[in-house]
């Protein structure tokens, strides 16, 4: 937990206060400014906020890169992240005031919208980093995902052993359920924790989401069997339930890990688009000055 709160509370929230101060100062300037025309990016304050905003965008983009370099230099990685997060939020205020709330279907508003997307995806990332690593630890009881997978493997082997003595249909369905269990997968499978597991039952392939179909079958068989067979089946069902729970943990972990990193898939390409549109914005402002 300490790691995850540290960039937000780094240096007693130094960058938080700087960001709040920057946002308040620019807001006050906007409120008390009396431009000779409706507020827009072309008033003296508009140019000032725009220049600050553009420099901040480039600096924050560099910061985003810099914080990945564990090279010797001034500042700590945590400090860079802290500055990146808080000043990024302050940029939202500065750039919005720079627009003077004038929007349209043009390159200028495109730059603004992309900037908002970058900042929002960044905020999403902060929230994800705040929430999911802790939740994942809670989920896995400090075990690693590999450990959970090994647990599943052991359970699988145990089930197969037990299945040897069980009636053939039970052996088959256990074989099939284990063999055709699926976790993870493509982008949406991971992000939405989709369960594509199936099971072959009486020659038909049926969905085995949450291993429920196989479990239902086993429970159905429990009503029919007797004696040692029933006892064996009860043991199998108990262990099959453990397997089901472990798979569920794996899927949740995959989902949370995916969500924790998915924002970056947007954050970085949109940042590139933002810098391009920022260049085009400045170009457009001065080509038709």
């Amino acid at each position: 937990m300490a790691m995850h709160t540290s960039f937000l509370t780094h240096a007693k929230g130094r960058y938080l206060w700087i960001a709040v101060l920057v946002a308040i100062l620019s807001s006050l300037a906007f409120i008390f400014d009396e431009p000779t025309e409706p507020p827009n990016g072309g008033t003296p304050l508009g140019y000032t906020l725009g220049t600050i905003g553009a420099i901040m965008i480039l600096w924050l983009a560099y910061l985003g890169r810099r914080k990945r370099n564990f090279v010797k230099g001034w500042g700590t990685t945590v400090g860079w992240v802290s500055a990146h997060v808080y000043l990024g939020c302050a940029l939202l205020v500065i750039a919005t005031l720079h627009t003077g709330f004038q929007f349209g279907w043009n390159i200028h508003t495109l730059a603004y919208v992309l900037m908002v997307c970058v900042i929002l995806s960044g905020i999403f990332g902060v929230v994800a980093y705040r929430t999911y690593p802790g939740a994942r630890n809670e989920l896995k009881k400090t075990k690693s995902l590999d450990d959970i997978f090994l647990q599943v493997e052991e359970v699988d082997a145990q089930l197969l052993r037990m299945a040897s003595d069980a009636p053939e249909d039970i052996r088959n369905i256990l074989n099939s359920a284990i063999e055709r269990t699926v976790v993870g997968g493509g982008f949406l499978d991971q992000v939405r924790a989709r369960d594509n597991s199936v099971v072959e039952l009486n020659g038909r392939v049926e969905s085995n989401k949450q291993q429920q179909r196989a479990l239902d079958y086993l429970l159905g068989r429990a009503r029919e069997l007797q004696g040692d067979q029933l006892k064996l089946l009860h043991d199998i069902i108990r262990i099959f339930n453990t397997r089901k729970r472990l798979l569920s943990i794996i899927r949740d972990d995959i989902r949370m890990h995916a969500v924790t990193s998915v924002w970056l898939l947007f954050h970085i390409p949109i940042t590139f688009a933002l810098i391009a549109s920022l260049i085009a914005h400045v170009f457009a402002v001065f080509v038709y000055w």
Binding site: F149, D156, G184, G185, Q190, I250, H257, S261
Partner: peptide, 15 residues
């Protein structure tokens, strides 16, 4: 290893 049967991380998708 069971885990290797599956794609469990986004980076494995090589986006």
């Amino acid at each position: 290893a069971l885990r290797d049967k599956f794609t469990t991380r986004l980076w494995q998708l090589s986006i």
